[in-house]
């Protein structure tokens, strides 16, 4: 009955992964609006639009990765193996989610830092000598 065990594994893994993605992205993008407002200097409509676009990208990336690593390749001869395989999958996915969260935070901080820098002075126009 190996097929049944693998199916049980998928049936547990997919909801857990989707729930984790949903929860993390809800937390991240509820709090990121402040950064966006800061980055875009209080222009609320652009900040909201960018926030929404980032959220969509985050969902796509994480759900895509969750589906990508879904396949269980080891043979599951007992329920012990099923639990172990599930642990590896869900643990790996959580670590990946954490990394993505930090990358997103880094992007926000970078945007904030860049937005607070004074604009660079325009370079001198090329001057032509002679003629």
């Amino acid at each position: 009955m190996e097929t049944t065990k693998i199916l049980i594994g998928y049936a547990i893994y997919l909801p857990v992964a989707l729930f984790l993605t949903f929860y993390v992205s809800k937390t991240l993008f509820k709090n990121s609006k402040i950064y966006m407002l800061d980055i875009f200097k209080g222009r609320e409509e652009i900040a909201n639009a960018t926030n929404k676009l980032f959220e969509t990208g985050f969902y796509l990336l994480n759900i895509g990765f969750a589906l990508l690593i879904m396949k269980i390749t080891t043979t599951l001869s007992s329920y012990q193996h099923l639990v172990e395989a599930l642990g590896t999958k869900i643990g790996g996915f959580s670590i990946y989610l954490g990394l993505m969260l930090f990358i997103n935070l880094y992007l926000f901080f970078r945007g904030k830092r860049k937005a607070n820098q004074p604009p660079k002075p325009a370079p001198f126009p090329p001057t032509y000598v002679g003629q």
């Binding site: 990208g57 796509l60 990336l61 895509g64």
Partner: peptide, 20 residues
């Protein structure tokens, strides 16, 4: 099904991030 969907979704997300 999961693999094929995942590939398409990953391509979409990469394009999306480049756009942003």
């Amino acid at each position: 099904l999961a693999l094929k969907l995942a590939i398409i979704i990953c391509i979409l997300s990469v394009l999306h991030y480049i756009n942003i």
